[in-house]
């Protein structure tokens, strides 16, 4: 068990990608989250999972409870705006009748799951019914209006023709269905960031059973942290079943070093924001949820 101040606790870290061609076709990176949840569903480890599906507007996610492979695949690809995943966590155990709930989400949403498990406040039945949690790496998130401004103004693309969005190498990248690629410097997007993200002290979903993200691995591959006993059990079985190609993280470029570097930037920067909140007013402060 590694216990890293920036990357959290984990047993192993690998670079991996799915061997499922259908999943890879539409995956943001290595198709890890989709493949894991489909596998867990097919193996009966979960009987449903909260995913970020398609919403009413292009690239606006809508969380829903997926109970089939087909539905899980509908939630592929990163949508860089808020999807309130946890709004379904109780309902999944109610009208959906689930006994083993899977959850996908970014760091803060995984924190919410763990908090509900330990301090269930009007969250009856939830603690015992969370079966598998996959967390995504997350630097910061945007509101839908922000993503509209970035895509439609800064990169000058129409949202309904966008095939994929990515943040990497200092740029917000937009790929269109017709093959066009447009970018905006990340610097320009900063003012659109969701303010709540600036107090977040978690980059690689420290509290997930398994966490995964693009940073550290080559394009088309994902960096995967296997963290808990549940995560370890599912990961090793899935690898044995031939669901993933894997490489030791030490053998890929840019590797763990870049993950570490970005985690440091996020955490150290946000620690500073938290510190500033303590002296925000004259002789008074703004609240600190970590206090």
């Amino acid at each position: 068990m590694v216990s890293d101040p920036y990357l959290g606790k984990y047993t192993t870290c690998i670079s991996a990608r799915s061997t499922d061609r259908e999943i890879l076709k539409k995956a943001q990176d290595g198709g890890i989250a989709t493949t894991l949840m489909v596998y867990a569903l097919e193996e009966g480890i979960i009987d449903g999972v909260i995913v970020a599906g398609e919403g009413d507007l292009p690239w606006k996610p809508r969380p829903f409870v997926a109970m089939s492979r087909k539905d899980i695949l509908k939630a592929q690809k990163a949508k860089y705006n808020i999807s309130p995943q946890i709004s379904w966590i109780k309902e999944a155990t109610r009208s959906f009748g689930l006994d083993k709930v899977g959850v996908t989400g970014v760091c803060c949403q995984i924190q919410a799951v763990r908090k509900a498990q330990l301090y269930p406040i009007n969250m009856r039945d939830v603690p015992g019914k969370i079966a598998f949690v996959v967390g995504l790496f997350c630097m910061e998130n945007f509101l839908y209006d922000s993503i509209q401004a970035i895509v439609e103004d800064h990169t000058n693309q129409s949202l309904s023709s966008v095939k994929k969005m990515r943040i990497g190498k200092g740029k917000f990248q937009v790929y269109t269905e017709r093959g066009n690629v447009a970018t905006a410097p990340l610097q320009a997007t900063h003012k659109y960031g969701q303010p709540g993200c600036y107090v977040c002290l978690d980059y690689v979903s420290n509290l997930g059973d398994i966490s995964t993200g693009s940073v550290g691995s080559p394009d088309g591959w994902s960096t995967v942290f296997v963290r808990t006993r549940v995560g370890n059990d599912i990961w090793s079985k899935a690898v044995d079943a031939g669901l993933f190609e894997t490489k030791p993280i030490e053998e890929v470029k840019p590797g763990l070093e870049l993950v570490m570097k970005l985690a440091k930037i996020k955490l150290d920067g946000n620690r500073k924001t938290l510190e500033e909140r303590r002296n925000f007013g004259v002789n008074k402060a703004l609240r600190d949820p970590y206090a």
């Binding site: 009987d47 009208s95 959906f96 009748g97």
Partner: peptide, 28 residues
């Protein structure tokens, strides 16, 4: 809890019906 949303103080019933129907799995 499954049919009514919550065992104590059911959340599903509302004026005019219910908020949600149940899934086939929940029915089973």
């Amino acid at each position: 809890a499954v049919a009514g949303g919550e065992a104590i103080h059911p959340s599903n019933p509302r004026v005019g019906g219910m908020y949600r129907n149940v899934s086939p799995r929940a029915k089973q």
